Amino acid sequence: MLLSGFNFRGGTPSDFDSIHNYYEPLVLEELQRVLVDKDVDSEYIADVSCVALNNLPPRYIRHDVDMMFYLSSEERSEINKKISLAVKEAIAYVDTRTRAE
């Protein structure tokens, strides 16, 4: 096990299960919104999600509510713009690569 020698001081490795990238659900929501009328499969959605997430800065958190509490409305708006752009560019990239094959 990777963390076998690590002293958790009362915690367990399962405490890390709550850690996730803040952008993951937001990218999926944006994809759902953008692709609502498109006939795409789960492979396409996974590919676009990976490309979009790789073009966003990682923001690892434990609780979504903590992130939302500390963001101003301007920061939330900026994040939404970044997500929208990343998804748009990821769709274009995947579509181009798919057509090339």
Rank of each mutant, 00 (worst) to 15 (best):
E74L: 15
D39W: 15
V65K: 11
Y44M: 09
V34T: 08
A52T: 05
L31Q: 04
D41V: 03
E24Q: 14
E29G: 13
C50P: 03
L35H: 12
E30W: 02
R62P: 07
F69V: 04
S72I: 03
L53Y: 12
L28Y: 02
P57N: 11
E74M: 14
V27K: 00
A46S: 14
D64Y: 07
E30Q: 08
A46P: 04
V48I: 13
H63L: 08
N54E: 13
P57T: 12
N54G: 11
V48F: 10
L53F: 13
Y60K: 00
V36K: 11
L28P: 00
D64W: 05
E43H: 11
Q32K: 12
E43I: 06
E74D: 15
E24S: 14
P58A: 08
E75F: 01
E75K: 04
S72R: 05
L28A: 06
M68P: 00
D41Y: 01
L35A: 15
L28H: 04
H63P: 02
L31I: 07
P57K: 14
S73Q: 09
S73N: 14
R59W: 01
E74A: 15
R62A: 13
E43W: 07
S72N: 06
V40F: 07
E75I: 01
L71M: 10
V40T: 12
Q32W: 08
D64Q: 11
L26A: 00
V65Y: 13
P25T: 13
V48C: 09
E30T: 06
Y23W: 03
E74C: 11
R33T: 14
Q32M: 10
E30H: 03
R33V: 09
R33S: 11
P25W: 05
V51M: 09
M68H: 05
L26W: 00
Y44C: 09
Q32I: 10
D66M: 09
N55V: 05
I45N: 01
Y22Q: 00
Y44T: 12
V51A: 12
R59L: 03
E29Q: 15
D41C: 04
L71A: 01
D47V: 09
P58D: 07
D47Q: 14
S72D: 03
E24R: 12
Y70A: 07
L35M: 15
V48E: 04
V34L: 05
P58W: 06
L26V: 00
